[in-house]
C-alpha cells in the first residue's frame, strides 16, 4: 500500500500544472476502491465474529466434545457434530473420487482428441450443467435417481459384495434408494462442470511447441498427456479440483433431498447420513432454545473453516501457477 501511495505521488509531481487539478479526484478514486476492498474484509470478519458469537454457547457447554460426539438430541439438548462432519467429508470424498477422473477425462478429450467442430457443443453443455440450480438436482435426485438406485444399483451392490470381507460392510443394509452414496453421486454430477472448466482452461495454456516436440519424438496422445500436459498444468488442475471440492462441501439443497438425513454414522455408504449444510437447512427454522440454535451455528462455523481452508489452498495453488506462467 505504501508502494502504491509513493507511485501515485511520484506520478503527480511529474504532471503538468493543468492536470494537477485532477489530483484530488485521483485520490478520491484511490480511496473509493480501497474502501471497496476493505469492505469485503470487514464483511468476512463480521461473518466470523457473528458465527463465533452465535456458536459460543454450544462450545462453552460441550467444549471439545462437540467435535467428537455423535449424539444429536434436541429433546435432551445433547449435541455433537461428528455425524454431520463425517457425512460432509465422506460425500465430498466420494464425489471427488469419481468426479476428478471424469472431469479430467472430459478436459483431455476436449483439448487433445475431440474434432474441432464438436468442441464447442460439448463445452457449452458442460457450462450449462453448471447453470442448473441445485434444487433441480435435488428434486431429480429424489424422484428419478433415488428410485433407480433403489431398484437397480443398490440391490446389485449389496448382492455382489455380500461375501467380500470389507466391501460387504461398505455396501450393507436395506436399499432405501437415498443415502450417502446417492448424495455422493449427485454431488459428482454437480462438481463435474467446475473441475472440467478449469482443467480445460489450464490444458489450453500448454505451449503447442512442447506438445509438438513430444509428438515429433513419436509419443502417443496418452504419453503426451501423461508426461507433458499434466506435469505442466499440475498446479492449475489441483486448483480446479479444490474449487469443485469447495462446492461439494457446501452444497445444501440437492444433498438434503437425497442423503436420508439421519444423525448416525454407518459403516455402509448405502445407509442414510447427513451433512453440515443439510442439517442446518433442515433444522434451523424450527430450532427452539439457545443451545439448539447455537449448535447449528457452530456447525456453520465448522463448515466455514473447512471451506475456508480448502479455498485458501486453491488460491495458493493458482497463485503458484500464475507465477510460473508469467
Amino acid at each position: 500500500m505504501t508502494d502504491c501511495a509513493m507511485n501515485t505521488s511520484a506520478a503527480n509531481t511529474r504532471r503538468t500544472g493543468a492536470s494537477r487539478w485532477f489530483a484530488p479526484s485521483d485520490k478520491l478514486f484511490h480511496g473509493l476502491t480501497l474502501s471497496a476492498a476493505v469492505f469485503v474484509l470487514l464483511l468476512l470478519g463480521g461473518v466470523i465474529v457473528a458465527l463465533l458469537e452465535g456458536a459460543w454457547p454450544a462450545f462453552a457447554k460441550f467444549g471439545f466434545g462437540f467435535l467428537v460426539s455423535q449424539s444429536w438430541n434436541p429433546v435432551t439438548e445433547q449435541f455433537g457434530a461428528l455425524a454431520p462432519i463425517s457425512g460432509t467429508l465422506i460425500t465430498s470424498f466420494i464425489a471427488m473420487l469419481l468426479g476428478i477422473p471424469i472431469s479430467i477425462g472430459i478436459a483431455i478429450f476436449l483439448t487433445e482428441i475431440c474434432p474441432m467442430w464438436l468442441r464447442r457443443p460439448i463445452g457449452i453443455c458442460i457450462e450449462l450443467l453448471a447453470g442448473i440450480p441445485s434444487i433441480i438436482f435435488g428434486i431429480w435426485g429424489l424422484f428419478v435417481f433415488a428410485p433407480f438406485m433403489q431398484r437397480n444399483v443398490q440391490p446389485f451392490l449389496i448382492d455382489t459384495f455380500e461375501d467380500v470381507p470389507i466391501l460387504s460392510n461398505l455396501f450393507a443394509g436395506p436399499p432405501y434408494g437415498i443415502g450417502i452414496l446417492t448424495a455422493s453421486l449427485i454431488l459428482t454430477i454437480m462438481v463435474l462442470p467446475f473441475i472440467t472448466a478449469v482443467t480445460r482452461d489450464v490444458f489450453e495454456t500448454v505451449p503447442p511447441v512442447l506438445k509438438e516436440a513430444a509428438y515429433g519424438l513419436g509419443s502417443t496422445t496418452w504419453e503426451v498427456t501423461r508426461y507433458v500436459v499434466l506435469p505442466y498444468t499440475r498446479v492449475g488442475v489441483v486448483g480446479g479440483i479444490m474449487l469443485g471440492l469447495g462446492r461439494a462441501l457446501g452444497e445444501t439443497m440437492a444433498v438434503t433431498f437425497v442423503i436420508g438425513n439421519a444423525h448416525r454414522i454407518h459403516a455402509s455408504i448405502i445407509g442414510p447420513g447427513t451433512t453440515i449444510s443439510a442439517t442446518i437447512a433442515n433444522e434451523f427454522t424450527e430450532a427452539v432454545g439457545d443451545i439448539y440454535t447455537a449448535s447449528l451455528v457452530a456447525l456453520g462455523l465448522i463448515l466455514f473453516l473447512i471451506t475456508f481452508t480448502v479455498l485458501a489452498i486453491a488460491r495458493y495453488m493458482l497463485m503458484r501457477l500464475n507465477k510460473r506462467a508469467a
Binding site: P74, G179, A262, P272, N282
Partner: peptide, 11 residues
C-alpha cells in the same frame, strides 16, 4: 419435540 434423535429409519 419438533425434531428428535430418531433411533432408526431415514429422514
Amino acid at each position: 419435540a419438533t425434531a428428535v434423535q430418531w433411533p432408526t429409519g431415514i429422514g
